[in-house]
């Protein structure tokens, strides 16, 4: 499924092409993932928790965000932060008061939103992440992981205890350290990136990244033909993850935007040194 939308602010306007796909996978019986792919919000949520509460949790996040923003208008940073907070309240309402440990229902959240910041109404992409779903940015050549997983293995990697490769096989690789619904206060990592002329983001649940490496994902993105009739990018990626094992629910949202009306000239965007110093200060060799 591929949709297009136009999101306009006072000065600039973004044409957004988005594709999204989700699959239960080859092993699990319930798909606990949800996604939202309607301008200005694009997100995936990977639910967890016993008693089928995981799918309710991710759906609650989808519903909260879906209701919070009018379609095809830029959101605001404050609005997105408020939606994250109310998602947390909604998910906490699902698990009972006596729930502890694995019976707590919770969900990850990884997404991007087109937002305006400040009175000037400047257009930005706001990325937000809680848990181990991921946000990548794609510039047509290289795939860069923007988000940092909130997981036990990520902490071990950062501490230098294990390597990235060992993390893939570590017994704790499914333990996450932050989630929507896990505690009273929810603390998202946030990025604000100036809208550029062309940008693309990939949001996915861990079902994709546990089956496919970053290089494989990048290759699929690079080789995908621009054919509106054929399978969408998200569908191709989900299929590839299923072919590689599909041990978990797989959900992918791909957002490609072309923004016009920006004052930023991306081709000539280096800061110029004001004073060419060094001419008078160099100590000359005595010779």
């Amino acid at each position: 499924m591929q949709t297009t939308a136009t999101i306009a602010s006072a000065q600039a306007s973004s044409n957004v092409v988005v594709s999204a796909a989700s699959d239960t996978g080859m092993v699990r019986s319930v798909n606990e993932d949800s996604y939202l792919a309607a301008g200005p919000i694009f997100l995936v949520a990977d639910g967890m928790g016993g008693h089928n509460a995981g799918d309710q949790a991710s759906q609650a996040v989808r519903a909260t965000f879906g209701a919070a923003f009018p379609a095809d208008e830029p959101a605001t940073t404050a609005g997105v932060l408020a939606a994250i907070k109310s998602s947390n309240v909604a998910v906490r309402a699902i698990s009972g008061d006596d729930s502890v440990g694995r019976s707590i229902s919770g969900t990850t959240l990884a997404g991007v939103a087109l937002v305006t910041s400040g009175e000037s109404g400047l257009l930005h992409w706001m990325a937000f992440n809680i848990g181990d779903s991921r946000i990548y940015s794609w510039d047509g050549r290289s795939l860069v992981q923007l988000s940092v997983d909130h997981s036990a293995v990520q902490e071990l990697v950062e501490a230098g205890v294990i390597t990235d490769e060992e993390a893939q096989l570590h017994p704790d690789r499914n333990v996450i350290t932050r989630a929507i619904g896990a505690s009273e206060h929810v603390d998202a990592d946030v990025w604000l990136l100036p809208a550029l002329r062309r940008q693309a983001f990939l949001m996915c649940s861990d079902g994709l990244t546990k089956e496919l490496g970053d290089e494989q994902i990048a290759r699929i993105l690079a080789e995908h033909p621009d054919d509106p009739e054929g399978p969408s990018l998200a569908e191709v990626l989900v299929e590839a993850a299923l072919a590689a094992g599909g041990r978990d629910n797989v959900t992918v949202v791909v957002v490609e935007s072309i923004t016009t009306g920006l004052e930023i000239d991306a081709d000539n965007d280096e800061t110029i040194e004001r004073v060419p110093h060094g001419i008078f200060e160099d100590t000359r060799p005595r010779s």
Binding site: G25, V27, R28, D46, M48, G49, V100, G101, R102, I104, G106, T108, G131, D132, A152, P171, N174, V175, I176, T177, A179, A182, S183, D206, G207, K210, R247, D248
Partner: peptide, 13 residues
């Protein structure tokens, strides 16, 4: 191992 389930550690939380 290998169940592909994402779990939360309540203690950490």
């Amino acid at each position: 191992d290998h169940d592909g389930m994402t779990v939360m550690s309540g203690d950490i939380a």
